[in-house]
């Protein structure tokens, strides 16, 4: 199995980025590229689904951290959904719940962009 596979879907005006595997310093470049390409293409409403992530190291969180204010400056946001237990735990330990809005369900994360 590849260490990281990334699927990107459009749900209305929202890009749903779904990584499968794990994000660490080895795989982060692919994750970062997937996010940056969305932003460069003007898709600044981004939901990252963590449903199929086994773990995320600080490099992965750093990729979101380095991009999110540019995305917000362009009227969008990066929102997170469906984090598995271990990933959600590290997310909270790092204090990312103060930086990113999180949702249990993808539908709710996508819906949260309605009207924004």
């Amino acid at each position: 199995m590849p260490e990281l596979e990334i699927t990107i879907r459009s749900v209305g005006s929202v890009a749903v980025v779904e990584p499968r595997g794990f994000v660490n310093a080895h795989t982060v470049s692919g994750f970062e590229r997937a996010l940056s390409e969305r932003v460069d293409a003007g898709n600044v409403r981004i939901v990252i689904s963590g449903a199929h992530l086994s773990y995320v190291a600080s490099a992965g969180f750093g990729a979101i951290m380095g991009l999110i204010e540019d995305v917000r400056g362009r009227g969008g946001d990066i929102r997170i959904c469906a984090l598995s237990g271990p990933v959600a735990h590290i997310f909270r330990v790092l204090g990312f719940d103060r930086l990113c809005r999180t949702f249990e369900r993808e539908e709710d994360a996508v819906e949260s962009f309605r009207g924004s």
Binding site: S58, A59, G62, A63, G66, E69, V93, L94, G95, L99
Partner: peptide
């Protein structure tokens, strides 16, 4: 400590690793 809100405002991608080790 590492404050992701401050680091994000500075467009930083790094600075989390040692603080994460310390928390775990």
């Amino acid at each position: 400590e590492a404050d992701p809100v401050r680091l994000a405002a500075e467009r930083r991608r790094g600075g989390l690793g040692v603080a994460l080790m310390r928390k775990l």
